[in-house]
Design a protein around this nucleic acid. Structure first.
Lengths: 366, 366
DNA sequence: TTGTACGCGTTATCAG
DNA sequence: CTGATAACGCGTACAA
């Protein structure tokens, strides 16, 4: 990595496997005392061949005479030689770096998506670098710039939503960038997202079909595109059913699990408390369930709890909770596949597409 | 980044902020059509100055005549110039890359530790790169090798425990490597870990003080150093109290939350089922709590559940659960601070230390 | 098949 | 204060 895509891995086979286990005194001395890295020149002179012979050996050991090859191999082991990726890249201008830029690596959704991306790119001989932006637009810009500067082969981004123009310019400049999880409606860029509008709609339709008519909703940041889409979906379903959704029961900008729990608890003190509570993300759903457990509420007899979850609700909650099961691994996988397709195609300019993954409504078992 | 530590950031100030927003046709054309990056040479010729003048401008704009400085600035903007980090590093041999190598980024403990590391290094102008090894020794070796190859300034590693010799050699070769969360008892290397032996001991002592005398334990992989330490701690406390811990109630190698739940459920069918269940990691504790909720068990009246949790048990579980509260952010923070100290000291060889962070036993509120 | 020599983009040294 | 030039380590035409 940080090296040429097509030959970097071949080289590793010959030069890296276990090298460090055989650190020769000479190499250690040069490194520790002179702080000087072993170069191809050292290898060449020790092996008694020219630099190019070593270079050739690295790219394909069969291209040189067997006798020299073994001398070179010995020399490489002896000196514990590791090719300098910066010099390699200076020539090639290509790297196998894939940057994954997410707002919050400690969020289960993103960490699972990252995991999927790591796996898919590892298999395809790319090197994944994960960055955490804290949903800070400046940090996001910084990391994107740095990854472009590093000649990353591609950038997978979950944007905070406040770098619209910047992202458009990056894409226009010809860099391979794919959004995942969060779309940007005004940017011509590829994106792989879950269909959150549909998810909100489907879930609400189902709850209506169960006979529910009074709803409360808890959601995260109102700036979040996904929260907006989910809310639109919920609204649409309710409108179609002619159910009025009182605004005072639409709790926005709830950040933590505990905040969700206490919101639900205080909601229960209302005389006209809705019977069906929708939590619009995994964290909030956990919070609502926590509160229900604390209060030993009868679910789903007295109240119905529904929402969005990263985990399978059937095996996560102690009572029936119909929920849209998010699939971060699938989002990561699909986004990764799309990136791989672009990396394989040399063509850079394509009509950007928006891939919407189906929302999966998981119902309680009978 | 992937650039010189001391000057990379200064440069960013002048060259990167918002550059991409002003992509000039010329640059776009050169990049898209010729696939040729803009170099310092282009900037120099457009500005009508020499390469060295531009280079000087980049490192310190005040070092050249104001008139030329503004010409250079204009040229840089016009061409949307971004210094090539590979060329920079080829000269300097130093990077500000910090590699964070973890077994499973989707595990909450590690993702929170990574988050802490990202923050601390971002503040200190280092660039964090996260890698996921899946607890595969080969992947672990691969990533360590690649990061060394990339001249990473430091490597923060959560090892799978099967690369003992390899890690020792890396450290001996003078690379800055720090272990966190999991120690290696036979390697002379710095490590920052939670005191899991003490944690197991303290938790068990507390449970004994509550009057419990019959225990069951659920734990993860028996190969895991942390599981071993926790178990030793538990055993020690029990021995001291003269309580016999029946081996058949020591359930090892439980992997998933659901497996923990069903283990507990089947345990309840035993006629002599222990009254106190200890779950040795966060996931397993969640599973046991899930089962208890499902079965509406009276906790802590009929059974006591205790264990290890990443989250504050008082706000996570609907009933009292005494637990060792793991603190991944602190582990990350302390490990990061230690690395920063080493990076500041130029001295490379130190007696390695093992920093054990205190286990925090969180008791239910009265 | 092997070696020489040049260039990649940058920084640093040295002359002017 | 500025410009020419020599490195940095590697890959590769080109020459032998």
């Amino acid at each position: 990595m940080f090296s040429i895509i097509d030959s970097g891995f071949t080289k590793n086979v010959h030069t890296h496997c276990g090298n460090l286990c055989l650190a020769h005194d000479y190499a250690v001395e040069r490194f520790l005392i002179n702080m000087k890295h072993i170069t191809i020149k050292d290898v060449a002179s020790l092996a008694g061949v020219s630099i190019s012979t070593v270079s050739r050996y690295l790219s394909d050991p069969t291209r040189i005479r067997p006798a020299l090859a073994s001398a070179v191999r010995k020399s490489i082991k002896e000196l514990n030689y590791i090719p300098n990726p910066f010099a390699q890249n200076l020539k090639s201008e290509y790297t196998n770096i894939i940057a994954v830029i997410t707002p919050d690596i400690s969020n289960q959704f993103f960490s699972e998506a990252c995991k999927a991306l790591c796996n898919i790119f590892y298999k395809n001989k790319y090197f994944v670098v994960i960055c955490d932006t804290d949903d800070d637009p400046e940090k996001e810009k910084y990391y994107i710039n740095e990854m472009i500067r590093s000649r990353a082969a591609g950038v997978m981004l979950v944007t905070c939503g406040q770098n619209t123009e910047f992202i458009q310019n990056v894409v226009d400049a010809g860099h391979r960038l794919i959004l995942f999880d969060r779309m940007e409606q005004n940017v011509k860029v590829d994106a792989v997202c879950e269909d959150n509008f549909r998810a909100g709609y489907d879930l609400t339709k189902y709850l209506l079909s169960c006979g529910h008519r009074s709803f409360a909703a808890l959601s995260g940041s109102e700036k979040s595109i996904n929260m907006q889409l989910i809310n639109s979906g919920i609204q649409k379903a309710l409108e179609e059913a002619g159910v009025v959704f009182e605004n005072k029961y639409n709790f926005m900008n709830i950040k933590t699990k505990e905040e969700a729990a206490s919101t639900f608890e205080s909601l229960l003190t209302y005389s006209d408390c809705p019977k069906c509570i929708i939590a619009c993300n995994s964290n909030l759903l956990d919070g609502v369930v926590l509160a229900a457990n604390r209060m030993r509420l009868s679910i789903p007899e007295k109240y119905a709890i529904a929402g969005f979850s990263v985990n399978d609700p059937r095996y996560t909650y102690p009572f029936p909770v119909p929920a849209i099961m998010e699939n971060p691994a699938l989002v990561g996988y699909e986004a990764g596949e799309l990136m791989l397709k672009y990396l394989a195609d040399k063509s850079k300019l394509q009509t950007p597409k928006l891939i919407l993954l189906d929302a999966k409504l998981v119902l309680p078992e009978k």
